[in-house]
Amino acid sequence: MDKVIYEPNKYLKMGIKIWPQMFSEIIEFRELTWRLFIRNLGAKYKQAALGYFWVIITPFIAIGTFAFLNKAGIVNIGKTDLPYPLFALIGLTIWQLFSSGLNFGCNSLVSAGEMISKINFPRETLVIASIAQAIFDFIVKLVLIVVLFFVYRYIPSWKIIFFPVLILPILVLTIGLSLFLSLLTGVIRDTANAVTLLTTFFMFLTPVLYPIASDKHIFFKLNPLSSLINAPRDLIVYGYIADPMSFIISSVLSILIFLISWRVFHLVETKIPERM
């Protein structure tokens, strides 16, 4: 029989011993996470006439826009075999994994409101399930990109099989930031608005729609998102990572942010139902 004790600052007193518990909780509740994800997905498209078709409408519109910009000669990405619409779409797809993941994750606790204050279950599942939504959109767009490879008759390097590994750091960063920001949104609702605003403008400050320009300004080098987006894209465009050092530094940073946020989340998630 499992025995549970609730007391003030319970998790804080556990110290380092909390980590195994946190990991086992995530594993134990993977089914719940999956169900919540399916629930969100189902509910999102159930009342839409076009249903799941919406998932691919957005990238198609994006492609059209980039193709037009390219034809008009407004953007020039330099020497690469990869057509610009594909280049931009890959960048945007990776960026949106981060930005929509962050926006979904941020609101995940608040939008579950009632449930959080009435039922006891690990709240991480809500955050992860909402980011899974962004992952789902990401995968759909990847399939579209592969289709476009055929359309443009572009053959990427075989090293493309490492693409999923190179995507992990930005995903870890997204989950990490979401865990922390969702808590903050629970206490101060302004957070969600700020995140929407910041992700919109930060996209232009990050080499998403244009190639990296670290020699132009020191900011591009310091922005960890630059290398997190560029490394996986480089793999498709060139077949190698242009700046592996900054990618490794950014990855380590992402993992640190994730671990700290997760720990903080676990410590204070019990305070969130009071503020709903």
Partner: peptide
Amino acid sequence: GIFMPDKGKIEINGKIGALIQVGAGFHPLL
């Protein structure tokens, strides 16, 4: 266990099922 106590201690022996508000976890569209 939805709220943590600010003082004192609560010990529970076994799995708890709670019906605090019905339909709290229901999604209206599903």
